[in-house]
Simulated assay, not measured.
Amino acid sequence: MCHCESVASGLLDTTVESFDRHFAVNARATWLLIREYGRRFGGAHGTGRVIALTSDHTVGNLPYGASKAALDRITLAAAHELAHLGVTANVVNPGPVDTGWMSGELRERLIGRTPLGRLGTPLDTAHLVEFLCSPQGQWINGQLLMSNGGFG
């Protein structure tokens, strides 16, 4: 859903500007989008969906991880606050997805931590999102779903 930048910074060396930029993109923008969707939703009861993409990355990229945690909570709040409209809201953590940004060394290290022996693909994530958007996914609400091949 949202991504500001990737920075190699932690608790002690993250700048205020970087922290604020991450929260502006990953938390505030998400809240504004979901809020406006809820205000404007006019579809049939049970057909509305909010799905956010998150990450469990924290160490070495504190502002990104912290802002994604805020995104999670905003989306999960929407599951309760928009339910009267027939809108479900869920968060998907796709784990490591190879979209071309990884170095060979990182790719191999992450594959080694995945029981299925491969990284995720955008299509892997899309399949779950497609299900959540379908009538069959209408009972799933307020969940943080891991779609990561068992990555750990």
Rank of each mutant, 00 (worst) to 15 (best):
N26Q: 14
D72G: 00
A29R: 03
N61A: 15
G38F: 02
S67D: 11
P63K: 06
Y64D: 03
L53E: 04
V25T: 15
G60Q: 05
R73V: 02
A66V: 07
A70G: 05
G46R: 10
R35D: 15
I34Y: 09
D72V: 10
A29C: 04
E36D: 12
K68P: 14
V25N: 10
A69H: 14
K68D: 12
V25D: 06
R49Q: 04
V50Y: 02
Y64W: 10
A69I: 09
P63L: 08
A27F: 02
T58G: 00
G43T: 06
V59Y: 00
D56R: 10
V59L: 08
T47H: 11
K68G: 12
L76R: 07
G38V: 06
R40E: 13
T58E: 05
R40M: 03
V59P: 00
L53G: 07
A27C: 06
I34G: 08
S55I: 04
A44G: 02
T54I: 04
L33D: 11
A69C: 05
T47K: 14
A44N: 01
T47G: 07
H57M: 03
H57I: 08
R73T: 02
H57P: 00
G43R: 06
S55E: 10
V59R: 08
A69W: 01
S55G: 04
S55N: 03
S67V: 07
A66T: 13
T75R: 02
G42K: 10
V25E: 07
L62Q: 00
K68W: 08
N61E: 14
L62C: 02
P63Y: 01
A70W: 13
A44S: 08
A66S: 12
N26I: 13
R49I: 11
L76F: 02
A44D: 14
D56P: 00
A77L: 08
G46W: 11
S55M: 07
R28I: 08
L32G: 05
R35N: 15
S67F: 11
A79Y: 05
A52D: 07
D72T: 09
H80N: 13
L32H: 13
R39L: 10
L53H: 13
G43Y: 02
L33S: 14
H80D: 12
S55T: 15
T58F: 06
T58S: 00
L33C: 15
V59T: 06
H57Y: 01
L62A: 13
I51N: 10
K68F: 13
V25A: 07
L32V: 14
D56I: 09
A44R: 12
R39P: 00
A77R: 15
I51E: 07
T30M: 03
R73E: 12
P63T: 05
R35K: 15
G42N: 14
R49D: 05
G38I: 05
H45E: 09
A66I: 03
I51A: 01
A66E: 05
R35V: 03
R39D: 10
R28T: 15
A78G: 05
Y37W: 02
T47D: 11
T47W: 04
R49N: 09
A77G: 07
V59E: 04
E36W: 03
V25M: 07
G48A: 12
R28F: 01
E36K: 12
N26Y: 09
D56W: 01
R73S: 11
A52E: 06
D72Y: 03
Y37C: 08
R39T: 03
H57F: 00
T30H: 01
L32W: 14
L33H: 08
L53K: 13
N61C: 15
